[in-house]
């Protein structure tokens, strides 16, 4: 982004009517916002309505977008900078991400659903890593309890799986 470029802000409006103003370029991390602006909408005072995402969740998403936009802009600014600095900045951003996503499960669901609907790839990725970490090293029943999932296998299906992939059953379920 050139220095002379005017600062453009956009407003995102959550399903419960809260408005969030942010730099358009930060909001463009979302494919959904990108599409909306491309067809010439969303720049007006009414902003872009974000359906199905509450203000509480959207505020988190905005924090993520701002942080990642700022980091990317800073990296752009010093592309002649040494490799070491770039690596350090990347590491810093990763640590920030880890802190950011260290959330209760309910919030994590909300953010993943929101990131997916908004088409923010980096945030979807981050949430997926977090969920994957939660499942690793757990038995099936522990995963069910942890994530609140119901065991919906019929005994017939269980027998079938047992037959087809015995290796799966070598650990307690």
């Amino acid at each position: 982004m050139a220095a002379g470029k005017p600062v453009v802000m956009v407003t995102l409006v959550s399903s419960d009517g809260q408005s969030f103003q942010l730099l358009e370029e930060a909001a463009l991390l979302s494919a959904m916002v990108r599409d909306t602006i491309q067809i010439g909408q969303g720049r007006g005072p009414a902003g872009i309505p974000i359906r199905n995402i509450t203000g509480q969740t959207l505020s988190m998403v905005v924090v993520y977008c701002n942080k990642h936009y700022t980091a990317a802009a800073a990296a752009d600014g010093d592309d002649a900078a040494d490799e070491e600095k770039k690596v350090a900045n990347k590491k810093q951003l990763r640590e920030w991400d880890e802190q950011f996503i260290n959330l209760e499960q309910d919030k994590l669901y909300d953010i993943l659903v929101a990131a997916n609907n908004l088409g923010i790839d980096g945030l979807v990725d981050l949430c997926c890593w977090r969920f994957a970490d939660m499942m690793k090293g757990k038995s099936a029943s522990e995963i069910r309890v942890k994530l609140g999932i119901r065991d919906d296998f019929t005994s017939e299906q269980r027998a079938q799986i047992e037959k087809d992939s015995p290796w799966v059953w070598s650990r307690t379920t």
Binding site: R144, F153, V168
Partner: peptide, 10 residues
């Protein structure tokens, strides 16, 4: 771990 996940639900 994937094998255990496969046993969580249908």
């Amino acid at each position: 771990a994937l094998g255990r996940c496969a046993l969580v639900s249908r």
